[in-house]
Computed example of a mutant assay.
Amino acid sequence: MRVEIWSDIACPWCYVGKARFEKALAAFPHRDGVEVVHRSFELDPSRAKGDSGLVIPMLAKKYGMSEEQAQEAERNLGVNASSEGLDYLTEGRDHGSTFDMHRLLHFAREQGRQDALIGLLYRANFAEERSVFDDERLVELAVEAGLDADDARAVLADSSRYADDVRTDEREAAELGANGVPFFVLDRKYGVSGAQPADVFAQALDQAWDSRSPLTTLADGDACGPDGCAVPQTGSHEA
C-alpha cells in the first residue's frame, strides 16, 4: 500500500502531521507493507530564491493580524509540536522559497533517502536557529541524510533539475482537490486532510488496507513457484 504525503517544509502543521502519522504507522501491524512517498506543495510558489524574512511579520501581513497575535499563534503551534515530542522555535525563525528543497527531496527519493532528508529539513526549519534558506546549509543536511555533497550541490546549482517533478506534484495536488497541506492520500483511494490525531491516521490505514482490491486474474497457465514448475502435459510444446 502506498501513502503519498503532500507537504511543504514551511508548513508547521506538516511538521506536526508527519509526527502524528508516523506514530500511527509505527503501531500499524502491516507497516512493513506501506510505502511512504513525500510529494511537493509550495505554500508560496511565487517566492523568489533569496527572498527571505522573519516569520512573525510575514504572518501578520498575510493574515491581517497584529504581530502580537502572530506571536501567540506561533506559541500555540509550539505547544502542539511539543505534545508530539518536537522542538519548535516560536520566534526568530525565517521564511523563504522552498522550491530548491522540494527539488532536492526528489533527488533524495531516487537515492532512497527522501524520508531522512525531509525529517532533517523540518528539524532545521522549525527547531534550529540557523537559517535553512541557504544552499550550503541544504548541502550539509543532504550529507547528514546520506547523500553525496557534490551531487547535492549540482542539483541546487541547476534550477531545472527536478523542477518538472515538483510542478507535476503540485498539479496532481490540485487535481486531487488538495488546497492545503498536509494532505495524505492512501492508495489513491482515500484522502486525509490536515494534521489529524494519530488515531485518525490509524483508522485510515486500517480502512485503506482492508479495502485493497484483490487481484483479478485474467488468465492462468503453467508457471514456476516456490514448490517447483508445472509439469507439461502430454501433447504440450516446450519453448
Rank of each mutant, 00 (worst) to 15 (best):
L59D: 07
Y63L: 05
G64A: 00
G64F: 02
Q69Y: 05
E72K: 03
E74C: 07
E74R: 03
R75V: 03
N76P: 12
N76W: 01
L77E: 01
G78I: 00
V79W: 00
V79I: 15
N80G: 09
A81W: 01
A81C: 02
S83K: 00
S83N: 00
G85R: 01
D87R: 14
Y88R: 08
G92F: 07
H95I: 15
H95V: 15
G96D: 06
G96W: 08
S97M: 03
F99Y: 13
D100Y: 14
L105V: 11
L105C: 11
H106K: 14
F107T: 09
F107I: 10
A108G: 06
A108K: 08
E110I: 11
Q111N: 10
R113V: 10
R113E: 14
Q114T: 04
A116P: 06
L117W: 11
I118E: 13
G119R: 03
G119F: 06
L121A: 09
L121H: 02
Y122P: 02
A124W: 00
E128K: 08
E129R: 09
R130W: 04
R130D: 14
V132C: 06
V132M: 06
F133C: 00
D134S: 09
L138C: 13
A142M: 14
V143C: 01
A145Y: 05
A145G: 08
L147W: 09
A152C: 10
L156W: 05
L156F: 06
A157E: 14
A157C: 15
A157K: 13
R161P: 05
D164G: 12
V166K: 02
V166Q: 03
R167Y: 10
R167E: 12
E170Y: 06
R171V: 14
A173F: 09
A174N: 15
L176Y: 06
